[in-house]
Amino acid sequence: MAAEETAQGPVTMLSTPIRLDYNFTAGVAQSKSLRGYAEGRFIGQRCPVCKKVYVPSRGSCPKDAVATTEEVVLPNTATVTTFCVVNVPFAGQSIEIPYITASILLDGADITFMGLIQGIAPEDVEMGLRVEAVWVPKEELGPTLASVKYFQPTGEPNREVSTFAEHL
């Protein structure tokens, strides 16, 4: 706007700031997963039809379209199935670049989710890397995936890609 005030040429641009406030609700199933984060653990759900374990679960098996009701507590250990190194700045970004985002397959889960990897140089990360979740300090735990600070290598040998190929 300042530019328009100083230069009295024709108006060619219009600034229209938009702000909308929402009150988002997680619903029953997601709240179960979120409660797990608040307690520092992963809670997944098993599909009654295909028996696969979803974490985080949105309340249904997307394939069978049935409600997933059985809860499954999952460990902190996981495998990096694949990953990328993010080196792109953008509006609203809250992590310093470069950073590694990986598809995380928790032991006992049947789907992956996106997680941050730290404690290893980007060039050393490989598919199959074994990692474990590092949670924020107990007093900072909350009902959000952000309670998982990051995943760090466990030091175990990498898993062969062929052993998790169905998750790629």
């Binding site: 108006v11 600034s15 938009i18 406030d21 709240s31």
Partner: peptide, 18 residues
């Protein structure tokens, strides 16, 4: 049994060519 809710703000300074 708690259902979690959270404020969510969608905000952007759109700039439109006229």
């Amino acid at each position: 049994t708690e259902i979690y809710t959270s404020p969510h703000v969608l905000e952007y300074p759109y700039a439109r060519s006229t």
